[in-house]
Design a protein around this nucleic acid. Structure first.
Lengths: 205, 205
DNA sequence: CTTTTTGGTATACATTTGTTCACCTATAAT
DNA sequence: ATTATAGGTGAACAAATGTATACCAAAAAG
């Protein structure tokens, strides 16, 4: 990768910061204004240089500065589900708070979403309130899987057991009791395949 | 959050996907074109509706559709450390088993590595053998931080406490005892900022 | 049944943004 | 000494984009 001048680094940093905050890149004139460059063409030259050096991509049209992302491993954008609104499918846009990139080595090409844990029902399995669960979307589960179950439109995390004609959803918490439900009285939203604990910032996004 | 019509959901999904791919949002006309709406004002109405319902933000100017998002989609390659060989610096190439991409929202621009846990010394903190720790490289620690400490070239994960002239490394496991070491008889490799549990495959890469 | 919302067409216009060209200065490289 | 590179000014112009208005039809809400 070609090296950048001090000025070019500043410009690139500004573009990245701006894009991160606003969700769209700055216009040439906004870059100029920020750096007190009095002519748009002055700022344009810097952008052109950054494109030529491979740090940015460009297209015809207004405000089309794209950042060149270069990572080795493949990455998938995975939706992060906020509070699950009752009655609305868990993956509906209404529930999606944002998206995070995860390695495909974790997501494995399946339909994946991330859910933030509320409640202490799984503490004995190392899952605490505030942790993030990486969940693979599936409607069936195996004996003993940790699943996200929807009961009356409400999402809960429990360990799954079949028991004759009914299903036992067992919390991993000595102080809480298992729930026994008839098949059909609940839905499995998916299986928990990974837990992410944010010890410091507490938020994944 | 207000509910969306089917059409509005489609539009929102398109805007998110487009922004994710390109790094900047579509223009009103591009939205119209994608949905075969023959007039820009037709598409504009949908965007206006999404703004009014709180799903998007808007500003004067071209291509300024903002998603109310709180995440970054930038990615950093992070080294995964295998078994730590005694006497070799933890981040030396000899110890690196591979690399995984992680969101910068987790890595936060600091020097980061991932370490696989061996042993049960932190089970009461929800950290089990086989879990992966996201560790930020730093030599100092605060009272109560979970740290990766190097004692005699051996890496261990413990909770860190200062106590006068010595340091107490406390395992989060009722069956194990704290270790008391003199400052200088050990090194802090970093602070654990995140825990990733792979419930299914057991491997992160 | 009437009104509102939703989704759309068509046209015209205002605004923002990008682009080009000529010209200037300082610095580093050949 | 001369040439390229980096950084910049100023003005004029082209292209892309956003906005407003009028009008239409189906569906949902009252």
């Amino acid at each position: 990768m070609k090296t950048l001048t001090k000025r070019q680094s500043e410009i690139l940093r500004f573009i990245r910061k701006y894009s991160g905050i606003n969700g769209y890149p700055p216009s040439i004139r906004e870059i100029a204004k920020y750096f007190s460059i009095k002519s748009p063409s002055g700022a344009k030259k810097h952008v052109d240089a950054l494109v030529k050096k491979g740090y940015l991509s460009r297209r015809k049209g207004a405000r089309t500065i794209g950042e060149e992302r270069f990572y080795t491993d493949r990455v998938r954008m995975v939706p992060v589900i906020g509070r699950v609104a009752a009655g609305i499918p868990i993956l509906a846009v209404e529930n999606i708070m944002g998206e995070v990139p995860l390695p495909e080595s974790i997501t494995e090409g399946k339909e994946i979403f991330i859910l933030r844990v509320e409640g202490e029902s799984m503490v004995d399995a190392g899952i605490n309130s505030g942790d993030y669960l990486v969940v693979r979307r599936q409607e069936i589960a195996e004996q003993g899987d940790i699943v996200v179950a929807i009961i009356d439109g409400d999402a809960t995390v429990k360990r799954f057991f079949k028991k004759g004609n009914t299903v036992v959803l067992k919390p991993e918490n000595k102080n809480m009791n298992s729930i026994e439900v008839k098949r059909g009285d609940f839905l499995i939203a998916g299986k928990v395949i990974s837990v992410i604990k944010m010890l410091e910032s507490g938020r994944i996004l």
